[in-house]
């Protein structure tokens, strides 16, 4: 007697106490690794939603010159260029963040200084790569 089910039934009769909840974002002091972990999720979600635009652009290209020119006009507008810039940064940030995760998956870079540096530099590396891509694109225009 007294298996898991019996114990749960007894516990159910006890009034739930006001226990402290586990701490969430607003409790922790911000750190680079925490910020970049969140950024990895945010950029991943952004890339996910942005695939609608990429698919639409591909379908426009497959539909003919008129649809393609319309898609290019949207992409070349101020808002279009801003979205493209953010999308390219999200892609490169997620890519560099993924490389950081590969390093961690291999069991390296876990000491406090290294993990903070990996997270910190991923912003500068992905930001720098984004600027390089846009300089190359504008030079070829």
């Amino acid at each position: 007697m007294g298996g898991p089910l019996d114990r749960r039934m007894i516990l159910a009769e006890v009034k739930p106490a006001a226990r402290p909840l586990s701490p969430h974002l607003q409790i922790y002091r911000w750190s680079w690794t925490m910020a970049m972990s969140i950024a990895h999720r945010v950029t991943g979600t952004g890339l996910y939603l942005g695939t609608v635009l990429i698919a639409a652009w591909l379908v426009a290209a497959a539909s003919g010159p008129a649809a393609y020119d319309a898609a290019q006009a949207v992409a070349g507008s101020i808002i279009g260029l801003l979205v493209l810039f953010l999308y390219s940064f999200a892609l490169l940030h997620h890519m560099v963040g993924g490389l950081r995760h590969f390093i961690w998956d291999m069991g390296h870079g876990f000491d406090p200084q290294t993990r903070t540096n990996l997270a910190k530099y991923s912003v500068f590396v992905s930001g720098g790569l984004t600027l390089l891509v846009w300089i190359a694109a504008l030079a070829l225009r």
Binding site: T51, V52, I54, A55, L58, A62
Partner: peptide
């Protein structure tokens, strides 16, 4: 859906529809 639409577009461009 995203994969199917994108793949169809690439195939159409490729096969020259």
């Amino acid at each position: 859906a995203i994969g199917a639409a994108s793949a169809f577009a690439v195939l159409k461009l490729s096969f020259g529809g």
